[in-house]
Design a protein around this nucleic acid. Sequence first.
DNA 1: CTCATAAAGCAAATATTTTGCGTTAGGTAG
DNA 2: CTACCTAACGCAAAATATTTGCTTTATGAG
Lengths: 189, 189
Amino acid sequence: MAIKEAARPGGRSARVQEAVHQAVRELQTAKSREQLSVPQIAHKAGVTPSTIYRRWGNLAELLADVSLDRLRPDDEPPHTGSLAGDLQAWGEQYLDEMTSPTGQCMLSDIMASAERERRERCRRYGEQIMACLQERAVTRGETTPSVEDLMDGVIAPMTYRLLYEPDTATPARLSHWIAQTLSIADVPD
Amino acid sequence: MAIKEAARPGGRSARVQEAVHQAVRELQTAKSREQLSVPQIAHKAGVTPSTIYRRWGNLAELLADVSLDRLRPDDEPPHTGSLAGDLQAWGEQYLDEMTSPTGQCMLSDIMASAERERRERCRRYGEQIMACLQERAVTRGETTPSVEDLMDGVIAPMTYRLLYEPDTATPARLSHWIAQTLSIADVPD
DNA sequence: CTCATAAAGCAAATATTTTGCGTTAGGTAG
DNA sequence: CTACCTAACGCAAAATATTTGCTTTATGAG
């Protein structure tokens, strides 16, 4: 019986996961983090609390899982013709997303997770974007910093401010970080 | 009756806080984060759980409070005669501290706190160090980046890696960040 | 189709968190 | 120094959340 909801062909386990994630997402729009609880989510998802506890361990891990799931790159970052432009374009929409109440919650939930693995994935996400944009630049023949320098020069300050001081995570500062990082493109390691 | 334990003259409230913090610190050396609980801490501190719930709200906030308390600068960062040297010296001991199991827990606990205020304090801590070292440099007549550029160029990548990829938070990379940040000291904003 | 297994349901047992109310410590004014 | 006043604490009952042992069910392999 592979056809159940015509949705995801993942079997029962996948259906449960989807139902729970969905329940979390819906509840998050209505209630604040403080008033979310596992039994409540379980009820909305049509499963028993013990299913959630056995699978995710606790509320924090579940929320982190859901948030990380949402982080997937929706689509390819826009092409602007230059590395600086690509970085600015991608970064602006990312900042916009992450300074919103929803985005800030996502970041919080992810950081609150004890699982090292989760932060790892979060980092890889940024790294993939940087690698993608950098490769485009290389293809165009631009001289570019290493992916590592892009992480340190752009992703790091962006993330730092999103976490510690979201009001200062602005497009203007982003330009600054990009300019400085690209200006040292040819400084050897 | 101001003299009670000859310890801190803060009155009952301060005594309770100290007892609870102390209990947390002791338990943390013996048990893992998973097996810490409010009732357990309360018992060790000689208070009732409701006292802790009323004052801190929940375990996560209490742990964050204790961790942040430990973050206070023990003493003035060492003088080396140059900004690069001061940054490297301070940074190395900070990396050392924060890559340790204890340090990683502190960071986790702080990031898990919902209180924006706490992260704020965490940021100010870094900012104070940078401001201090920068002022020394100015006094010596060195040309230096702004405090903000130091935050973005040194603190941000350091923090990013401590949080997301602690194995790569190394003194060698620190030198790299410092060198690149100081090399753009005279680039106007 | 049948069997083996992993995941879910259920419900009882624990543990934690919240709450109402009485008590105490510390501060302040008289 | 004494007599309040208030914020914080203790206590214990009630409400919730979490864990756990056992049963049931869905899925995939043979």
